[in-house]
């Protein structure tokens, strides 16, 4: 357990040093959300119908923007190799790393989303539902991002390829996430899509670190 804790605190320290990564995603998330009412239509009903897709879309883009640097610096300075050789299991170390990464890049988005949601005239429990949806979906997306970042590690300009890989895999989460928000605003039952999101999150926690670890192993040799 000790090694996980050490890795975790190291990740946090490194993340503070590379704060621009997290900030870029954060700014992008916020900007997409406030630009939409400005360039389309700012009446309340319209905004309430699009808030779900906008939230999911901006979270998706924000997480995609910062993920290129998820493993790359550590890959170049040899940290990943050291982790692979260390005595803790590699899969659980990857899980620790992913969670630390999530804390730094996605948690701020969830916190700020209460503000952006109120720009869209969402009120009361709607904001909580949006935050819950974002929590579940970013926890799933971070594993998908980790896998994609790991598998494209050896490639010099992976941008377009990453987008191509990540979009089809993330699509169900985007659909169900925006469905949850939409249902909560319409006042209908949200349990269906919410259960789906939770299920996907569990699945990604079981499969994600394992598949990311094997992708990293492939990229290493």
């Amino acid at each position: 357990m000790n090694i996980h804790f050490k890795l975790f605190s190291r990740e946090i320290r490194v993340a503070f040093k590379r704060w621009t990564d997290a900030l870029t995603g954060f700014i992008l998330f916020f900007l997409i959300a406030i630009l939409f009412p400005l360039i389309s239509d700012s009446n309340k009903e319209f905004l309430l119908t699009i808030v779900g897709p906008i939230m999911m879309f901006s979270a998706f883009f924000a997480s995609m923007l910062s993920m290129q640097n998820m493993f790359k610096p550590d890959f170049q300075n040899g940290t990943i190799e050291q982790l692979m050789l260390s005595k803790g299991s590699f899969v659980s170390l990857i899980l620790t790393k992913t969670i630390a990464y999530w804390l730094f890049t996605s948690l701020p988005l969830i916190l700020i989303s209460s503000l952006t949601a109120s720009i869209y005239f969402v009120s009361g429990s709607g904001i909580l539902i949006i935050q819950l949806t974002l929590l579940l979906s970013t926890l799933t997306m971070v594993h998908i991002n980790a896998f994609t970042a790991a598998i494209t590690l050896g490639i010099r300009y992976p941008g377009a390829l990453m987008t191509l890989i990540i979009t089809p895999i993330t699509l169900p989460i985007l659909i169900f996430g925006s469905k949850t928000i939409e249902n909560s605003i319409l006042g209908t039952d949200i349990s269906g899509p919410l259960y789906f999101l939770t299920g996907m999150m569990m699945l990604s926690f079981f499969l994600g670190p394992w598949i990311t670890a094997s992708a990293l192993k492939i990229s290493m040799d």
Binding site: I151, G154, I218, S219
Partner: peptide, 27 residues
């Protein structure tokens, strides 16, 4: 297209095979 692109961008044959296969399994 993701499979084809991934296979084409990784230069080394063995690595390309295994990485793209992992993607196919995930798919």
């Amino acid at each position: 297209l993701g499979y084809i692109a991934l296979h084409a961008t990784i230069k080394e044959q063995k690595r390309a095979d295994r990485a793209a296969s992992l993607l196919a399994i995930l798919g």
